[in-house]
């Protein structure tokens, strides 16, 4: 369970997953890797964007809704074209995710993403985002240097913005995007072990990793990531292991529905944790957890029947 989540919210997520399968709601994803300038950055940006795009495919279950622009293909024109296309295709109930990797800059007025040919500005990107249907939730992850410059300007309802820096003044090449990409593949990022890495989990993972890396180098932290907007947990940025099967196998969908019911009961007990003596709280949750664990055995059995080995959480391998 995500920290701070209500039972109502969990039910919504469960329904959302099922809805995604039944009503053909889609998540459109655009990953852009800007110009590296040096070989080491070119390699990094390519690798990170590949990981993000690959993870997005596991999250959406549809490679056709995931587009990656990198190297010479990552031009202002191409970005404009892809965002216009996505805007046309987005429908009610869909989600949109944009991930930017590369070198950003800020001259005091305008943010720019460094691209082959003309750069694209923060204002131009915002104008394209604003053309999207208002009801479509947007997740914008700008992992570039100086990305904090856009955080406030891009804020609007239904949009979550994650930037690698807290301001345009943090100009050093960032590490955030690398750890964001790493979160897409790590069980450790999936803190509630439900097999899905949400934007909130990935953000927490990446910011902690950035802080740890600077600490290990005994260096001053030169980038401070920032998250604005509400409910980042609604965006699933990666699914680990066999979790994606939950969206396609009818038996697993039924089991997931049962799991959701038990999780709701657990969520109802959660507030007691601060009120009850710890042992008493454990006594209350234990039978519910046992029930959920037994359901987990059924999930394992179904996965085995599908030829998938069970592993950690729903992140079945």
């Amino acid at each position: 369970m995500k920290p701070g989540m209500t039972a109502r919210r969990i039910a919504c997520i469960a329904m959302g997953l099922l809805g995604a399968a039944s009503a053909r709601a889609a998540t459109q994803v655009l990953v852009v890797a800007g110009l590296g300038g040096e070989t080491q950055y070119e390699e990094r940006f390519t690798q990170w964007s590949q990981t993000m795009a690959g993870a997005a495919i596991t999250a959406t279950g549809n490679k056709d809704t995931v587009v990656r622009l990198a190297g010479e293909a990552a031009t202002r024109e191409a970005i404009t074209r892809e965002l216009a296309r996505i805007t046309r295709e987005l429908a009610a109930g869909d989600q949109f995710m944009l991930m930017l990797v590369g070198h950003g800059s800020f001259d005091g007025n305008e943010y720019r993403l460094n691209l082959p040919g003309p750069d694209i500005t923060g204002s131009e990107l915002l104008a394209l985002l604003e053309k999207m249907p208002a009801g479509v939730p947007q997740l914008i992850v700008n992992g570039t240097s100086s990305s904090g410059a856009v955080a406030e300007k891009w804020t609007r309802a239904n949009r979550v913005i994650i930037t690698a820096t807290r301001s345009g003044g943090e100009r050093n090449a960032t590490r955030f995007a690398g750890y964001w990409a790493e979160a897409m593949t790590q069980d450790a990022a999936d803190r509630d072990k439900d097999g899905a890495v949400t934007a909130q989990e990935a953000y927490d993972y990446a910011t902690r990793k950035v802080a740890d890396a600077f600490k290990a180098d005994a260096a001053l932290l030169t980038e401070h990531a920032k998250l604005t907007g509400s409910e980042p947990g609604r965006f699933v940025v990666a699914r680990l292991g066999a979790a994606a099967l939950f969206a396609s196998d009818p038996e697993l969908i039924a089991l997931r529905r049962q799991q959701g019911g038990i999780e709701s009961r657990l969520a109802g007990l959660k507030p007691l944790k601060t009120d009850l003596p710890r042992e008493e709280y454990y006594n209350r949750i234990e039978p519910v957890l046992v029930e959920l664990a037994k359901l987990g055995e059924k999930v394992d059995a179904r996965l085995a029947a599908l030829g998938v080995k069970s592993g950690g959480g729903n992140a079945v391998r």
Binding site: M1, K193, E263, Y282, L289, L292, A293, K294, G296, G313
Partner: peptide, 22 residues
């Protein structure tokens, strides 16, 4: 037991922990 229930309180569907609980 305490530690296991704490783990599952955070991650109720954590399969290895569920198996140990059973």
């Amino acid at each position: 037991r305490r530690r296991l229930l704490e783990a599952l309180d955070t991650a109720p569907n954590y399969r290895p922990a569920q198996k140990l609980l059973l």
